[in-house]
Design a protein around this nucleic acid. Structure first.
Length: 336
DNA sequence: GCCGTCACGGTTGAG
DNA sequence: CGCTCAACCGTGACG
């Protein structure tokens, strides 16, 4: 693990193997929506054009600026529940073919197209688990005891519908064009303040406003394998932690509390840094605006960016926003 | 000069 | 607890 970021050809700092900070990603999309050309965005934010292209392409496709889920393994489709059903089918009809079992799993709603085991998987189950019936109950009880999944199939469907379906439109949420969807997900996409506000907004919405949280969380958790299985604290496991990296990672408070300050490393807040480690993103992790208004780059047209390029986050603004999140909605509207 | 694409070297995290 | 491996990352180069 590199302790320090690297510098690309444009002078931008990046950490090899790690996603760009959400602030930068968001800025890329914002600038694109303002009509700035990708090549100019690339120069301005000092992000390779390949990366800009990728982020914009993804955004246009999925409506999300967030990076994909890194690491981990796909949950197995051969859950105990599935195995149990396969066994039942086999017991009822010993001559049943694997493909017939597959069809029945689908027909009976045990699986859907996203977590349906392959024929070869079913064959393997038949061979290894069903073939010796004396071992099944042992498997079942043993595997399920530690963390009994409330509904074995649901999390899989929930999670893995995302990569295969282009636009992760949650139920009840109308499919929107990319630029519209953006603002459904990110209540205000205008500044670092807004970016930072997302955390608190989401946190609070989860607890007190189902209508707002469901849509956003669905998408956020959907792209994160780490949210599986459903944890007692979906915020920490499914939304907050992965997407706050690397900012949160390097500015975590010593006691590990997910405080606002652990995320907000706005210029006027001295962020906590481990004594021996400095965030490679320190230069811009929470100061996108400084990035934007840096002295080395001037917009070619000299006009398009001015309205939004200087809204540097202040702790006060952020705090007040967390207390009164409704105040951000007009800002959102002004973007459109 | 711009942009889409891809090899590359890297990180991550479930199993 | 360390390993494996398949997912993802951004860069840089190519066409």
């Amino acid at each position: 693990m590199p302790a320090f970021g690297e510098v690309n050809q444009l002078g931008g700092v990046f950490v090899n193997g790690r996603p760009l900070p959400n602030a930068i990603r968001l800025r890329i999309v914002e600038l694109a929506q303002l009509g700035i050309r990708p090549c100019d965005i690339s120069r301005q934010l000092r992000v390779s054009h390949g990366c800009v292209s990728k982020i914009l392409a993804r955004y246009n496709e999925t409506g999300s600026i967030l990076p994909g889920a890194i690491g981990g393994s796909k949950p197995r489709v051969t859950t105990p529940t599935v195995v149990k059903h396969i066994r039942t089918y086999k017991q009822r009809d010993p001559g049943i073919f694997a493909w017939e079992i597959r069809d029945r799993l689908l027909a009976d709603g045990v699986c859907d197209k996203f977590n349906l085991p392959s024929v070869s998987s079913i064959s393997r189950i038949l061979r290894n688990k069903i073939g010796n019936l004396s071992q099944q109950s042992q498997y079942e009880s043993g595997k399920q005891a530690p963390h009994p999944p409330p509904q074995a199939t649901i999390p899989y469907n929930h999670l893995y519908s995302y990569p295969t379906s282009k636009v992760p439109t949650p139920p009840g949420m109308p499919t929107l064009p990319g630029h519209m969807a953006m603002h459904r997900i990110w209540p205000s996409s205008h500044s670092v303040t807004d970016i930072l506000g997302i955390r608190s907004i989401t946190e609070q919405q989860i607890s007190d406003s189902p209508s707002f949280s469901s849509a956003k969380l669905e998408e956020w958790s959907a792209i994160n394998r780490t949210s599986f299985p459903p944890a007692s604290s979906p915020l920490v496991n499914g939304v907050d932690k992965p997407h706050l990296e690397p900012e949160a990672k390097y500015t975590q408070t010593p006691n590990g509390l997910p405080t606002v300050n652990s995320y907000v490393t706005a210029p006027s807040i001295p962020p906590y840094h481990p004594p021996t480690q400095v965030s490679p993103y320190m230069g811009y992790s929470a100061t996108t605006s400084a990035y934007v208004t840096g002295p080395t780059w001037q917009p070619a047209s000299g006009s398009a960016l001015s309205p939004h390029s200087c809204d540097i986050a202040t702790p006060l603004a952020f705090k007040s926003m967390t207390a009164n999140r409704d105040a951000i909605h007009p800002i959102t509207a002004s973007v459109l």
